[in-house]
Design a protein around this nucleic acid. Structure first.
Length: 482
RNA sequence: CGGGGUGUAGCGCAGCCUGGUAGCGCACUUGACUGGGGGUCAAGUGGUCGCAGGUUCAAAUCCUGUCACCCCGACCA
């Protein structure tokens, strides 16, 4: 998959490092389909944990899961002008089936607003039917020109939430609520600090009136859009005729939202936390939170038995606390090899247990964020692991947050912006003029990632590019992005 | 679509200029010794050299065509 020799996230060849991690950590493999990948069991286990935690948050806020078809009549896309414009170039279309040419070609969904809109029109009659708070977990296909494992694959897995509301206020509140959930998830489960913000007109989703985003900083200081939440206004309601009778028996269009979070986020985890030794996984999402490596000579049956017994005891104690623990009892593989492998795979904590330890009633505990190992008493180990994992999460998050802070700047002039944008996130006043935004992108390769929801005020300031008054209440955030 | 590059064993590559019937590292198999940081030794398995044509006594190597993939850019979660 890659061919770099070392693993150095700060090196100029960050992209080789990234590909190497994906390969060495056994997350994914290239598939014999353009721009696609196979998510391997270890990577998929990570995705399952992401799914489970996010899904619980959706359910807790009143959402329900359902499922829509993979194939969508191409004509559906044409109904919403900006949507068709946004998605046409990347549609994959089925033209033949059943041995003959189809009367109407079917697109493989790049996103499901259209087909969901079609059905919502049938389901919604009255204000009593609202709101509709639905979500689906599925795959989508977008024929992007340039692909990268997890970050932009031709086919990817995601969830897409689609809600319909009686009023704009309610729909906007939903949009806001969901970006908060994404941010909450990113920070409290993945230990990835994010900037919440609103996209500028040019960066908005096709057909949206406003798009909220969470932006994370990768270890090469570039930004990664990690989740989005869109307010569609009445655009899709008008295009698909989704109307209802309100309390006054007057007909009105619903206001819709959509929000999505994808396997791209696995890329965010890799690039936020990984180091020269490999991946580092956030404990709350890691497939294995703790790996136990038993150590004994294969010709010493007594040692094997006592080590196995002790390992089993420890394992049960950890499982009882709800900890995801894995015992690596592969034979014929040296312990050193195993240590290395689990480090590359980013397992937060590793316990080494051999005859010498058992004599002392201890084990060695290795923490992926630390050098060396600590000797810990066995009875203590059994009860402190949960706290240890929680602490690991805090440290990982804090480390990523500090890295972002150290690479966040404030530009007072365009020259400063040009320089700073090479090293991270840059806050600056901007007029909001789309042409100026494009010109800045052209010259610096950096884009306005968002207008942060919380950030420095731009009151009374002038645009660093045009000299016109700031077009926003706060400074916008520029960065080079994936 | 523009610019660059690569197709030889599961993976990473050498061989090609100067034609003589394929090699290295890793991985894999077997055995022994090993086992607390990517083990050692020995013996093995595995390739119609991307595909098609041509030149030649002879083609991985030279020529023509073709396909695929990768990287940089434009597009994007």
């Amino acid at each position: 998959m890659a061919k770099s020799k070392g693993l150095t996230p700060q090196s100029e060849d960050f992209s080789s490092w990234y590909n190497e991690i994906v390969y060495r950590a056994d997350l994914a493999d290239l598939a014999p389909v353009r721009g696609s990948m196979v998510i391997r069991p270890y990577g998929y286990a990570l995705w399952e944990n992401i799914q489970r935690e996010l899904d619980a948050m959706f359910k807790a806020t009143g959402h329900q899961n359902l499922y829509f078809p993979l194939l969508i009549p191409v004509s559906f896309f044409a109904r919403e002008a900006s949507h068709v414009e946004g998605f046409s170039p990347e549609l994959a279309v089925v033209t033949h089936a059943g041995g003959k040419e189809l009367e109407e070609p079917l697109a493989i969904r790049p996103t499901s607003e259209t087909i969901i809109g079609e059905m919502y029109a049938k389901w919604i009659q009255s204000y009593r039917d609202l709101p509709l708070l639905y979500n689906q977990w599925c795959n989508v296909v977008r024929w992007e020109l340039r692909t990268r494992p997890f970050l932009r694959t031709t086919e990817f897995l995601w969830q897409e939430g689609h809600t319909a509301h009686a009023t704009a206020e309610e729909a906007l509140a939903e949009t806001r609520k969901m970006i908060e959930i994404y941010a909450d998830f990113a920070e409290n489960f993945a230990a990835v600090p994010v900037v919440k913000g609103e996209k500028t007109e040019g960066e908005r989703f096709a057909g949206a009136l406003s798009t909220l985003t969470i932006e994370a900083m990768m270890r090469d200081t570039r930004a990664l859009q990690s989740g989005t939440s869109h307010y569609m206004g009445e655009n899709f309601a008008r295009a698909f005729d989704i109307t209802f009778n309100d309390e006054n028996n007057e007909q009105a269009f619903v206001h819709t939202t959509s929000w999505g979070f994808s396997t791209r986020f696995i890329g965010a985890i890799i690039m936020s936390h990984g180091d020269d030794k490999g991946l580092i996984l956030p404990p709350r999402l890691a497939p294995h939170q703790v790996v136990i490596v038993p150590i004994f000579r294969s010709n010493d049956e007594a040692a094997r038995q006592s080590v196995t017994a002790e390992v089993d005891k420890l394992r049960s104690a950890l499982i009882d606390q709800g900890i995801r623990v894995h015992v690596d009892n592969r034979e014929g593989m040296s312990p050193g090899r195993k240590f290395n492998e689990w480090e590359q795979k980013g397992v937060p904590l590793r316990i080494e247990l051999g005859p010498k330890d058992i004599e002392k009633g201890t084990a060695l505990l290795a923490n992926r964020l630390e050098e060396g190992k600590r000797e810990v008493r066995l009875e203590e180990l059994a009860v402190t692991m949960a706290a240890e994992l929680s602490d690991f999460h805090e440290r990982l998050f804090e480390r990523a947050r500090r890295f972002r802070e150290e690479h966040t700047f404030h530009a007072q002039s365009y020259d400063e912006l040009k320089e700073m944008v090479e090293h991270g996130f840059v806050y600056a006043s901007h007029s909001g003029d789309p042409a100026s935004e494009r010109a800045i992108q052209e010259e610096t390769k950096a884009t306005v990632r968002c207008l942060p929801l919380e950030g420095p005020s731009a009151e009374g300031s002038v645009c660093i590019h045009t000299g016109k008054p700031s077009g926003y209440p706060r400074k916008v955030m520029f960065a080079k992005a994936y």
